[in-house]
């Protein structure tokens, strides 16, 4: 407690505190978020825990984020459809958004690309783009909401993911569909099964009636109008039906995993 009081005295050396906090963090890049949260976090941890230990603040935040996953799963209504818009509402130009520049975006060869299917499915055959293009497709004009706050309305055309999951004999009682992508550093993201089975969740092959350009995820993007943008992986290489939580590129860095909208 004495230690806590000394930290709460105005004028506490915040830099030293953060320096201490950073020492405890092996992977700085992935733990940046707590660095400046540590000092204010001290004020909220009135439970008497050691407030100079930033990992306790971090652990609390991550526990609450998991609680928020559960709350969002509870709020999620599988029959609630995301609002759709007329084509005149489409945002032009539709933004390219990634953790790299457009010229670094993966250029996938559509002739050799195959969608790999793994995990709890009856038929693990890989799918060529031509085979996938044969499947029935629907067009949806929906709003993409980015975790950064901005939003944009786009038109995506593709096969409902639930139809494809049925086709490959996926165990739809499994917890997740986990996507792996061609983005640099290996993008991946888990999608909870109920969201994967939502009628508007689709394997998108077209944007604005054109084959997906590189910027928007050629050859295939998973469009999930009930999730934030980063839960809509582009340049998809494989999908795995699994009961294991395998983490995700942004999820592992502290973004809320459910991130439903």
């Amino acid at each position: 407690m004495g230690r806590m009081r000394s930290l709460l005295i105005p004028g506490v050396d915040e830099k030293l505190l953060i320096k201490d906090a950073q020492k405890a963090m092996p992977d700085l890049a992935r733990r940046r978020f707590i660095a400046s949260g540590a000092s204010l976090g001290a004020l909220t941890l009135l439970t008497g825990c050691n407030v100079s230990d930033s990992s306790s603040a971090e652990a609390m935040l991550i526990r609450i984020s998991k609680f928020n996953d559960a709350v969002q799963a509870l709020i999620f209504n599988p029959d609630t459809l995301a609002p759709t818009f007329p084509e005149s509402a489409i945002t032009k130009p539709f933004p390219f958004n990634a953790y790299y520049r457009l010229h670094e975006a993966p250029r996938v060869d559509g002739k050799t690309w195959k969608l790999e299917v793994r995990g709890l499915v009856d038929n693990k055959k890989s799918w060529t783009l031509d085979e996938l293009y044969q499947l029935p497709q629907v067009k949806q004009v929906t709003r993409l909401v980015c975790v950064e706050g901005w939003s944009a309305i786009g038109s995506w055309t593709g096969t409902p993911l639930r139809d494809f999951l049925k086709l490959i004999g996926a165990d739809t009682h499994a917890k997740y569909v986990w996507f792996q992508c061609a983005d640099k550093d290996g993008y991946n993201s888990p999608l909870d099964m109920r969201s994967a089975l939502h009628p508007q969740t689709q394997m998108a092959f077209k944007f604005a009636d054109e084959i997906l350009p590189t910027a928007y995820g050629f050859p295939m993007k998973i469009r999930v109008p009930t999730k934030l943008g980063f839960k809509n992986p582009k340049y998809v290489l494989s999908m795995e039906v699994t009961n294991d939580y395998k983490g995700g590129y942004w999820e592992d860095q502290g973004y809320n995993s459910f991130s439903g909208s």
Binding site: R32, F33, I34, A35, S36, G37, L61, I62, I64, S65, V147, E148, W250, Q253, G254, Y255, N256
Partner: peptide, 8 residues
């Protein structure tokens, strides 16, 4: 510190 931390 950054967006993810602020959102948490």
């Amino acid at each position: 510190g950054w967006l993810a931390g602020a959102l948490l």
